[in-house]
Amino acid sequence: MSRGPVRVGVLGCGVIGDVYIANLGGHPEDVTVVACADLDLARAEVMAAKHDVPRVLAVNELLRDPEVELVVNLTWPAAHVELNLAALEAGKHVYSEKPLALTLDEARQTLDEAERRGLRLGCAPDTLLADGNQTARRLVDSGEIGAVLDASSWFYATSPGPAARHPAPDFFYQQGAGPLFDMAPYPLSTLVNLLGPIRRAWGRASRQVDEVVVGEGPRAGERLRVDVPLSYAAMVEFVAGPTAHIVTTWESAAGRGMLPVQVSGTAGTLWTPNPNRFQNAVRLRKSAADGDTGVEVAPQHRNTASEANLRGLGVWEMAVAMREDRPHRCSAALGYHVLEAMMAIEESAQTAAVVEIASTCERPDPMPEVLTAESS
């Protein structure tokens, strides 16, 4: 049931907008970017010229434009709720960068508005759709590692974190960002995809500095106030029983980036790719013969790219789901559940209490497999 490619309007033409628009251009049969908008119209003009986007609009013009079916909101976190609600009120489907909101009340308001209007609402991250994470999902679902016992994920970045290289890093150090809300959505979404919804969470947080220094660009040397913790350590317990240990920090001397997610079971251990990337590599260890790091498992899914940044994959999948009249995988319910888990970690870090998670969500359906090279 096709009515041509879904017509997308992109809000936010910064660094991540460049990646989204470029990748969406690789699926012209399913999605087409018909307009882009930014508070800085000159920046939007540059982006449109680079990617052959036919129209540059003011933000309010894009939201009202009858040609736009799906609004992709790539603005900074504090603007997500206002713009998502405005797009829904204008009758547009919405795909939002993470987090869905800065509070659970605002996130629930957004979900309720989408449901009331019969519109779709999606939320990043979409790395869980990549080949490696889908291969890991297949191994877990098939019982390849037996009953899952525990999992772990670590993200280590050298101080000062994003301020070292990002051209406009201010929002990373404000409420709604920091290493928890900026980085934890990746392993949490990956683990919910693998293990199902979360029951409870607890954690601790700290920071060693009250300001950071911009490292590059025209603002190099400028000092930014830090309003959030810069290191978190958390435990989450899943409804199905397993637990996971999650660390996110921008204060580590190691500066190693995000490591593979490790999932251990009664019959083996697997390592998924970096959950902030779209890599293929999955490793599986079932015996001593597999060595300490296991053996690599070949991916069997559709979106093959070992190192490419495929952000926008969730928008493409949502567009296909719209035309096929089926649920999309990067759902708002998943985004809300992950947001509540992060809020619970933050609350626990302040109170030292274990915090129960009230929401739940369905695991997204696995992506279709590609069984042979010829069928891909």
Rank of each mutant, 00 (worst) to 15 (best):
E29F: 11
V31R: 00
V33D: 07
A44C: 02
V46K: 05
A49Y: 14
K50M: 12
E61C: 06
V71D: 14
L74Q: 04
L74A: 06
H80C: 07
E82Y: 09
E82P: 08
Y95P: 09
S96C: 03
K98V: 06
T103S: 13
T103P: 08
D112G: 05
E113R: 10
E115Y: 10
E115L: 13
R117Q: 07
G118A: 05
A130K: 07
A136C: 13
R137A: 06
I145A: 06
A147K: 13
P160D: 05
A164R: 14
R165D: 12
P169R: 00
Q174Y: 05
L180A: 11
N193E: 11
L195E: 05
P197L: 04
R199L: 04
R200L: 00
A201V: 02
W202G: 03
W202T: 01
G203Y: 01
V212L: 12
G221R: 10
V226R: 10
E237V: 00
F238I: 00
V239P: 03
P242C: 03
V247N: 15
T248L: 12
A253W: 08
A254S: 04
A254H: 10
G255N: 06
L259N: 09
Q262T: 15
T272F: 06
N274M: 12
P275A: 10
Q279W: 15
N280H: 15
A288W: 14
R302Y: 11
R302C: 15
N303C: 15
A319R: 02
D325I: 03
D325G: 07
H328G: 12
R329G: 10
L334C: 01
G335A: 00
H337T: 10
A341W: 01
E356W: 01
E362H: 09
P364L: 06
V370C: 04
A373D: 15
A373N: 06
S376K: 15
